[in-house]
Design a binder for these strands. Structure first.
Lengths: 185, 185
DNA sequence: TCAAAAGTGTTCAAATTACACCCATGG
DNA sequence: CCATGGGTGTAATTTGAACACTTTTGA
């Protein structure tokens, strides 16, 4: 952190410095703070963790602070407890759990989508973050029943394989009550 | 924080120093970190917030760091946005939300109870934290149906008004799946 | 014309709520 | 013996998963 910076700004700056992703990270959400005295053997560091939504990801470039940067699927990054440095396995696990829960209780998933999107786009976000497949019909019913989650534009997206899907925009609702629970199995 | 202290230890120490409550806070859980540059006009401070479970509360005493200490019901503390100093209204609001959610998804509520407790004791914790009344019969059914939440001792607590209630101990389960949702209205 | 994706609706099972009702004790 | 809180059970309703089925396009 810099002397006159708040936590989110610092997080956004660091993201940019290390990866070159200064595309507008439209959502940065704190999930935890890590401060064991020996978590980084080089020096005493307290880390405040944020997870971000960056729609339409560009290829990351190593920024001023990093030797290299690339995108790694989260399942791969967590595949072994030793794959990441220091306590980063624990941190990433916490971040993922928080993001997964956020999709249940808030409408942030729309931030991963373009301004106009289809229900299938949104379903893709849920499936990616939750790491499971979801029934298209039930997902459609649930999402369109939640007031203020998505609002139809009246337009359709042409050009793809099957029946052209209707386009939606994000609604004004920020939370989902009751939560959109992820189905078992 | 002291040079060789992790975050939870520092939180436990601060709790003790400011209130004299060094009874074993059997649960300390982080909920957020606050770091706006001007949140405390006296100096730059980053605060990591923890909420604690302290069963059978003693009267707090102002410790080495505080002029005075007393217990205040959370509804009263949050009754006005200006009742607490700095950003403490926001912090306490976050803490309460987190504690409320914790009761839905984990078994921490048993930590508020003595080693042996009745379902009514447990229901009292839920009603206090959630700030609403709960149907005794339904609560009983739900809780006893969740495997590993409470285990009967076979004993009863005598001496009270009506039928002597059965006593339970906390089970081994740490999380509740699916969550024990708080009923609407 | 066929396969694929979108979207709607139906069925059956599971969960939830409200509440009736019996139990066991102290006053 | 009756009011009180504990505990069990049930009926009615709601929710949810699975999946059949229609729609509308590109190949």
């Amino acid at each position: 952190m810099r002397p006159n910076e708040d936590l989110v700004s610092a997080a956004a700056r660091e993201l940019s410095e290390e990866t070159g992703l200064d595309s507008p990270a439209s959502h940065l959400e704190q999930f935890g703070t890590y401060g064991s005295p020996d978590r980084d053997p080089r020096m005493r560091v307290v880390t405040v963790g944020y997870w971000a939504i960056v729609p339409d990801l560009p290829t990351p470039k190593a920024g001023t602070d990093a030797a290299a940067a690339r995108l790694v699927p989260v399942a791969e990054a967590l595949s072994s407890p030793d794959r990441l440095a220091f306590d980063h396995h624990e941190i990433l696990t916490d971040a993922l759990a928080r993001a997964r829960r956020a999709l249940e209780t808030t409408t942030v998933a729309t931030r991963f989508c373009p301004t106009e999107f289809t229900i299938a786009d949104l379903r893709g976000v849920y499936m990616a973050v939750w790491g499971r497949s979801l029934d298209p019909g039930n997902f459609q019913n649930k999402v369109t029943d939640i007031t203020g989650f998505v609002v139809p534009t009246g337009e359709r997206r042409e050009g793809s394989r099957g029946r052209p899907p209707e386009l939606y925009r994000a609604g004004h609702a920020k939370t989902i009550e009751p939560p959109l629970r992820r189905p078992p199995a």
